[in-house]
Design a protein around this nucleic acid. Structure first.
Length: 212
DNA sequence: ACATTGATTACCT
DNA sequence: GGTAATCAATGTC
């Protein structure tokens, strides 16, 4: 969840991918600690935000002890609160894209966003960051303090009463696992590991390329 | 199905 | 120090 003067936004995580350290050839840590990946080697519970394809920022939660690189990429989230704030940030992200900087491109982007269902506002790793207004400058932030602007909260803790969809982790068909997306370059061993996890039946789960 | 986008890294000089 | 290839996607065609 993000809570600040931009409003309160809450999302329920429905899809993640796990990344390891230098031994994981699909991980950004495979080249060791670099200026970009330093946060991956930092303390657990902090954010690692990187840009992919020169356009999209992706939010990861560092999971290893200091000096041990590993992180979980938040690939998809179901909005629980703050849908309007998410739409505003999505539009800002669209405006930033060059293709949307023409008046026609911007009109298309706005129209496309307007047709996007609430449940799919953050249905992809780049969309999660866009909907929450997160970029690379958020790297290194501690996501654990109850006072943090951007923070992780237990599914049932804060908002089980605020929204019928909150705390619904156990509501559906459980969790499935499959190969991570877009990591063929890592070689068959690392690419085949079922380190992508998702909740069955969630419309926000991305990956048309993977099993549902 | 395809164009877009730019930081990052590795590999040269 | 410069350059080329790569990339944990998305929106538009």
């Amino acid at each position: 969840m993000r809570e600040d003067d931009t409003g309160l936004r809450v999302g329920r995580i429905v899809e993640v991918e796990a990344y390891g350290g230098p031994e994981d050839l699909a991980s950004h840590a495979r080249f060791g600690a670099t200026p970009r990946t330093a946060a991956m080697f930092g303390p657990a519970g902090h954010a690692y935000v990187y840009r992919v394809y020169g356009m999209h920022d992706c939010l990861n939660v560092v999971t290893g002890a200091t000096g041990v690189a590993s992180a979980v990429l938040i690939r998809a989230v179901v909005p629980v609160a703050g849908v309007e704030a998410m739409r505003r940030s999505r539009l800002v992200a669209a405006q930033r894209r060059r293709a949307a900087r023409t008046t026609d491109g911007l009109r298309r982007a706005a129209s496309s966003l307007a047709r996007t269902a609430d449940a799919r506002l953050a249905s992809g790793p780049g969309l999660v960051a866009a909907a929450f207004g997160i970029d690379r400058t958020w790297t290194g932030r501690d996501l654990c303090p109850s006072t943090a602007t951007l923070r992780l909260v237990a599914p049932d803790a804060d908002h089980a009463d605020a929204h019928p969809d909150a705390g619904a982790v156990r509501r559906n068909g459980g969790v499935l696992a499959g190969p991570r997306i877009g990591v063929a370059y890592a070689g068959t061993t690392w690419a085949a590991l079922p380190w992508r996890l998702w909740l069955v039946g969630e419309v926000a789960v991305s990956g048309v390329r993977g099993p549902r």
